[in-house]
Simulated scan of single mutants.
Amino acid sequence: MLNTSLNKSLRMMFALLALIIGIGLIMPTAYAADDQSSKQQAASTSDADLWRAVKAGESGYSTDKAIEANVLINKAGNEGKEIRNVYIKPAIVVAVFGVFGAFLFFYLVNGPAKLAHGFSGKMLERWTKADIKLHWVMAISCLTLMLTGIFIMLGRHFIAPYVGDGLWASIIAVSKFVHDWSGPIFIVSWLICIIKWMPLQTFKMYDLKWFLVVGGYINFGPFKGKHPDSGFANAGEKMWFWTLVIFGLFISISGLMLVLPTLDLPREASIAALLVHGISAAILIAFTIVHIWMATVLSEGGMESMVSGYCDENWAIQHHNVWYDEIKANGSIKYKS
């Protein structure tokens, strides 16, 4: 009987000991598994927060001492790229094809502004030789910048798909080189033009009528034959001049910010300069196309003055009568011998 009780007690003790040992083995493993799960969950949450912060443009730490080296992803850069692709690129396309197409349609329907009394054959001086050279230096550099800028901005869409990679790389490299070196020529000539011609570009009350009758360029309806008063520069030329002054300044400053190697600008400033550059370019391209149309095919005899410096007397009377009356009255009129 005693042996039976002892055996039973020993079995219970061994069972209890086995239970304790089992619990001792299981609990650390379970705790470790639970701790690992908690760590994984915390790590997952931490990683998500980290990348959310990175994408939001928050700065971290880097041993690189360059400006904004601590920012892995620049939010302003991504937003600027979206603005350029969604708004500025289409605006440049509209400026080139839309404005050109509109004036082509106007020309086909309306025709050029003819001289009411034909050419007189008497040529009077309108521009000096220095003015002509200055105009063409600025004009050629400006057109070069516009053409190469269009290649740089839009070439990947309408050139790159149709040429090989090697040729496209050469086109974009040459475009950038020419664009960068034409810039200083434009800036210097633009600044001289502003200083030299600004006194001739002040708006007068009679300029309002010029806009109301569309400058006398319409050959049908109630506007036909209406030749508004105009000084040395008509209202349209004055508007073009001040557009060139304002947006030429914007495009010059932003261009210098983008190309000068010594400037270490924050990314936000570089993106702002790029956007201002693109917007200014779209506006100047549109106004340049208008200026070229108005000065050439839409105005009979208009181009001659910027080639030789002389204009026909009847052209001066019809398009710039106030200026003609002034130089005739003060005796400063100069005829081509």
Rank of each mutant, 00 (worst) to 15 (best):
D325T: 11
L274S: 14
L50F: 10
G216E: 01
L263Y: 13
T202E: 07
G216K: 01
D35V: 05
C311A: 14
N321P: 02
E82Q: 11
W242H: 09
L124T: 14
K226T: 05
G80V: 02
G60C: 06
A281I: 08
V245N: 03
L249W: 15
W323R: 02
H135A: 06
Y31I: 05
Q40M: 10
I327E: 00
L19K: 04
I218M: 11
I317W: 05
V54Y: 03
S62K: 12
Q201K: 15
L284P: 01
W127D: 13
A130S: 09
P112V: 13
A43V: 04
D325S: 15
F241Y: 05
G255L: 00
I187P: 04
F211V: 09
N85C: 05
A281M: 07
E304S: 13
I218K: 04
L108G: 09
G111Q: 09
T45N: 12
F151Y: 11
N234K: 03
W323F: 06
F151A: 07
I132H: 01
G77T: 04
L256K: 00
V163P: 03
D35Y: 13
I279H: 12
S38E: 13
A269M: 13
G255F: 02
L25T: 05
Q36F: 06
I279G: 00
F232I: 04
A316L: 08
M303W: 09
I21N: 01
R84T: 11
D229M: 14
W210H: 04
R84A: 04
K39C: 02
N330V: 14
H179G: 05
D325C: 10
Q41A: 15
K328N: 06
D312Q: 07
G77E: 07
L265R: 00
G302K: 08
I83A: 00
G302V: 05
G309R: 07
W242S: 07
I192R: 08
M294T: 14
H135C: 01
A42C: 07
A30F: 12
S337T: 12
R84F: 08
C193D: 02
S170E: 13
K196W: 10
R52S: 14
D64C: 06
D34L: 02
K328C: 06
G98W: 15
Y162H: 12
Y31M: 10
Y162D: 07
D35R: 12
G22L: 06
F97N: 02
W197V: 03
N74F: 09
H320I: 02
T148V: 10
E125V: 07
T288V: 09
H277Y: 15
H319V: 03
L2V: 08
W210D: 01
A32W: 11
K81V: 06
P90T: 08
S5P: 01
P90D: 02
M27F: 05
G248W: 00
F287G: 00
N219R: 09
D131K: 02
